[in-house]
Amino acid sequence: MEVSESADRLNPRPGPFLAARRTALVDIDVQNAQVFGLADKVRAAGLHDVVDGYDAEVAKILPKIRVLKDTCRDLGIEVIHLRCASYTGDGRDCSRLFRSVDITASGGESDAEIVDAVAPRGDEIVLSKVSAGAFNGSDLDLVLRRLGIETLIVTGLVTAGCVEGTVRGASDRGYEVFVVGDACADWTTQHHDISLGILGRWFATVVNTETMLGYLGALRRNDAAALSNGPQRPTIPVVS
């Protein structure tokens, strides 16, 4: 297969793929349990270095997620908040993976609440999921299709876990995905970096907050040229 010959076929949908009515920001698991609870557990086990690193990363991403959410709200882009939360009092409806690591808070518990700094506004959608990948344990796909969403802007916790699982599921279901790398965090920067590398190669367009805000600004100005020339979709081979 010649690359030049196949270029057109490999790009069946050229042009901008960011449109306000068809885009949603999906913020993953920025809830009390992930932001505060897990860290306390690890701290109790004596692993202070790791927890401090994680706490510092989370502190850095919260203001970025806040700005991205507010910018999306201004543009009329749907903001959707995912969280790990069970539908029963004891978490018996959670995936076995979640039960095995005690991620079983029910919807009404404080652990399942989105943290104040990036809390939902008005009638924004909050979806509880019972698995790492949102497409396996929530009705995210159904909700996105009803809203007519084709493109996702993804932020949240933790990068190599629920974020990566959800992005993989989204790309298989035909959504275009932007992962805002510096608005995601993981326990270790190593896991974070490896995850973004793999996501960027196969599944998503990995950007930082500044770049994403630039695209959203172009959307506001209705700058079609900036939108069609800016975002680079993932393609192989791209080897770091």
Partner: peptide, 21 residues
């Protein structure tokens, strides 16, 4: 093993493995 003493805590690269095992 997860240790109670921070000074003997494993390197960050192994933290998740330690958490599970």
């Amino acid at each position: 093993m997860i240790t109670a003493d921070p000074s003997t805590a494993p390197a960050t690269g192994t933290i998740l493995r330690e958490l599970k095992h």
